[in-house]
Write a protein that binds this DNA or RNA. Structure first.
Lengths: 211, 211
DNA sequence: ATTTTGACTAACAAATTTGTTAATGCAAAA
DNA sequence: TTTTGCATTAACAAATTTGTTAGTCAAAAT
């Protein structure tokens, strides 16, 4: 039995707590999360929580940072490609955004809730947004202006367009429990729904751009 | 001094607690709200909270019910008017919705958060939605189908269109702190912003409907 | 062989938070 | 005038929740 696992397996306790905490925080928010519940879900003593992460606020901050880094990476990778058309650029932005949300369906609601209820705690998030969003917006505005000059599209404000895109993409998930209660369909599998919304939202935005 | 206030002025304590609780619950959610903070904000002893409302859950439920009734009244008043065109109907729906959100800017985030974090507590909300939304949707679908037959618009799904409308309207407010961080404008006064978005969203939806 | 190190537990402690209760004062009814 | 009922307070109680600490145990280092 010494063939497998000669490599030290160490403790997965820390990872278990991290995973449990992520779920607890994302679904219940900081105020609603209980360190005892996290420990219990991780299958360890609650003292272990403090042993590894000291305080609740500590672990919370760590998880927020991790998630924000993920978001930043997914969304704010430049689409500067000179050859790509405005249409392709928008398709890329919508696609990336929607795929990311589908992979992290609890994140939008979580960030919205935390940013509002405590401007201090999720400050990192706003800082990251403020730091990187203008770059993406400037690039998009340039493409729109170019398109407008050659008569291919209307000259719309890139910021407002991004607000439209964000609204359409995010609310499909954030409002899901409410919408699926009002309508019936949405209970169909998520992949189909995401694919449908991706096309739908892209169409909506392109129609808004047409002269 | 007996000229004024011969009418019994009774206690405004109850009202003060109600007002403070509404603010606390709407901004912090059930988990984040503290009964002591509510009492303090209302300027009364925290025992008064329990004297008038027994439990935290009690008062919470009462406020949710009140808000949901308000929402229902604002949104689900029929637009059945036979004479009105599809365009007018949509303008009415968007206008009503956006005005209501502007008057209750914390409500969407609150409902979304509570519905998700505790499906039991804000159950009333989902029940109201399920009861009344289909009526509005059916009426809207009829108008769309009529318009499509006479070639005035595309035959789109009323549910999906409502999801678009809800997304565009709600997220303008829910995402406000985030968006205003990414962009600068939005710090201008709310009325101007609401008026702008109302037009903008109406335009977006009408473009989606055009053949 | 013994010392040390790190993961871990159980028990405790402190603070917060919700809820209760007995006592007080006061205004209207009896 | 007495009594009744209601709003209010202060103090207490119970439960929850976060955080600490002294000590155990096993494995690695010396």
């Amino acid at each position: 039995m010494q063939t497998e696992e000669t490599i030290p397996v160490v403790h997965d306790t820390e990872k278990a707590i991290l995973a449990a905490a992520e779920k607890e925080f994302l679904t219940k928010g900081f105020a609603g999360a209980r360190t005892t519940s996290i420990a219990e879900a991780a299958g360890v003593t609650h003292a272990m929580f403090h042993y590894y992460f000291r305080t609740k606020a500590n672990l919370f901050e760590r998880i927020v940072n991790e998630k924000v880094a993920l978001l930043k990476e997914a969304l704010f990778t430049p689409i500067e490609n000179k050859t790509s058309s405005l249409e392709e650029a928008i398709k890329t932005i919508i696609g990336r955004h929607l795929d990311f949300i589908a992979a992290n369906p609890d994140l939008p609601r979580f960030l919205i809730g935390e940013v509002y209820s405590d401007s201090e705690r999720a400050k990192v998030f706003l800082e990251q947004i403020r730091g990187t969003a203008p770059i993406l917006l400037a690039a998009l505005q340039r493409k729109i202006d170019d398109g407008a000059e050659s008569g291919h599209c209307r000259k719309v404000d890139a910021g407002m367009l991004m607000l439209d895109i964000a609204s359409l993409n995010i609310f499909s998930f954030v409002g899901a429990p409410i919408v699926s209660s009002a309508l019936g369909y949405l209970t169909e599998d998520m992949d189909t729904f995401v694919a449908k919304r991706k096309e739908e939202n892209f169409d909506t935005i392109m129609r808004k751009l047409k002269p």
